[in-house]
């Protein structure tokens, strides 16, 4: 066991993947000498060289498009999109090419490409640096979409994503990059499956569903609720596509109440899919409708307002309270 920040855990995970498989490449803007603007790729170019850790021209479509070509030649590229709001120039390559090419080839081609996207707000950034675009990608068949919430998962999940033969959109909670935790870097073969949700805090009264940066917020809310005598169960979804519906339903059937928490706007957000599925799967167990906590249905606000935009402990607990009013 070793103590790592989430950023360092990703770094160590990528390093391990590159050591294990010479076909693994890292590519993106400033990922080489600088080690990425968040230092997630720090030191990789020094140790693996410019051929494997590629500082690319400043164009996101080019990053993903050439990564596809490299994958067609047998490589396993890990692309860094510098910030969530900059993924959109690459959206065409991701949606029309990366997601659909294996199907187009009737299974002859596989595209093991990972697209890493630092996501979410809370770091006082300017516009386009704090977004949560996951629903665009969960709505695109052919992609796997995962989100890590803590250093231990970050270390394992990035390696699992790189080993996966499908394209993976990998969301990293940027404001949690500096959170530290114990990481078991030796337990490679005992990893929790990449496509499974995990109960990170058991409880009996309400199920909170979260992923990425909101898992920590929910854990804090659960600690506060416990003082009021309420027992919240936190399920870290980890994989948004495919979704671990069975694990979610198992929890909600026990608790009878469910609150979904994400930073993205509620309207048309991933929480809508969760609410719909839970209603179908757990209808007779529900004591209240599935409630959603998320950003307002507005663009991400200027940073001086982001504390009002982002779900926090109080808004989560407010929703928990409402879940008991039905």
């Amino acid at each position: 066991m070793t103590t790592l920040t989430l950023a360092k855990a990703l770094n160590e995970g990528m390093r391990k993947a590159m050591e294990d498989d010479p076909k693994v490449l890292v590519m993106g803007e400033d990922v080489g000498k600088l080690g990425g603007v968040f230092r997630v790729t720090d030191g990789l170019q020094k140790d693996f060289g410019e051929e494997r850790v590629i500082d690319t021209p400043l164009a996101e479509s080019g990053i993903v498009g050439t990564a596809i070509g490299l994958a067609l030649r047998g490589y396993r590229p890990v692309c860094e999109i510098q910030f969530d709001g900059f993924v959109f120039p690459a959206a065409d390559q991701i949606i029309t090419q990366l997601a659909k090419m294996p199907l187009r080839s009737l299974g002859a081609l596989k595209l093991p490409v990972v697209v890493r996207i630092p996501c979410g707000g809370g770091i006082g950034a300017v516009e386009h640096h704090s977004e949560s675009p996951e629903a665009y990608f969960t709505h695109t068949a052919g992609l796997r979409v995962v989100a890590c919430s803590n250093p231990a998962d970050a270390y394992a999940m990035i390696q699992q994503a790189i080993r996966c033969d499908d394209p993976v959109i990998f969301f990293e909670p940027k404001r949690r990059y500096w959170e530290k935790a114990e990481v078991d870097t030796a337990a490679a073969e005992e990893w929790f499956p990449l496509d499974r949700a995990r109960v990170v805090r058991p409880g009996t009264d309400v199920t909170l569903l979260a992923y990425g940066p909101m898992v920590k917020t929910c854990l804090e809310a659960a600690a506060a609720a416990e003082e009021d005598g309420r027992s919240l169960e936190i399920v870290d979804l980890r994989s948004l596509n495919p979704l671990d519906t069975a694990a979610i339903a198992e929890s909600v059937r026990r608790t009878g109440r469910c609150v979904v928490v994400h930073e993205a706007p509620v309207f048309g957000g991933f929480g809508a899919e969760l609410a719909a599925r839970i209603t179908e799967e757990c209808f007779y167990s529900l004591e209240a409708p599935v409630l959603r906590v998320g950003g307002p249905s507005t663009p991400y606000p200027p940073s001086r307002l982001e504390e009002h935009y982002l779900p926090d402990l109080d808004r989560v607990l407010d929703a928990v309270d409402r879940a008991f009013t039905f």
């Binding site: 050439t66 596809i68 070509g69 030649r73 090419m101 187009r104 080839s105």
Partner: peptide, 23 residues
């Protein structure tokens, strides 16, 4: 490669593939 319908997308795939040839 497969026919690509979105105009121009395949140019990047070709360059990426060529980078693979280099590697």
């Amino acid at each position: 490669h497969l026919y690509t319908i979105v105009i121009g997308s395949q140019t990047l795939h070709a360059v990426g593939y060529a980078m693979g040839i280099q590697r």
